[in-house]
Amino acid sequence: MNLNLILLIALLLAAFWTVLTIRLVRSVVGLALTSAILSVIMFRLGSPLAAVFELSVCSGLISVIFVTTISFTSRVSKERLTVRRRERFVKFWYLPVILIAAGLALMHLSRPPVFKFPVASVTQDAQSVLWNLRHLDLLGQVVVLLAGAFGVVILFKEKKDER
């Protein structure tokens, strides 16, 4: 219970740092950290397969995609960075205030919602659910992957034609 609370606070702090930090690369590192903490929470909540996916894909692959995208764009000059720091301070000082206010308001509500959770009928493992019950999902995933690959090919094809 207490470890869950510590992990949730760490998750919130990592997300908060991701939003507030000025440099984009640091923001991506914060996002990877958020994913890593989330995967630990998922593991503790009894979902190891999804936790492994989260850790490898969201914490690894998506960070690589973001860093690649950032590296193709131009670097911010020091003067611009100073201006941006000032702009961000003006723009983002509301966030901690909103978070603290929302957190306090929700804690003061302090009454758990009154409803009953449905009880699972049959306990199955994730593999059998994924391959036997949710096979249409898998088909959808394949279609989305192909659509994504097609989109990337179209985007980079134009670049090739220009040369």
Partner: peptide, 17 residues
């Protein structure tokens, strides 16, 4: 948990794409 994991895996794949 099995159904939740299956849904999360689908979500992650779509998120990456």
């Amino acid at each position: 948990q099995a159904l939740a994991q299956a849904l999360v895996i689908t979500l992650i794949v779509i998120e990456v794409v």
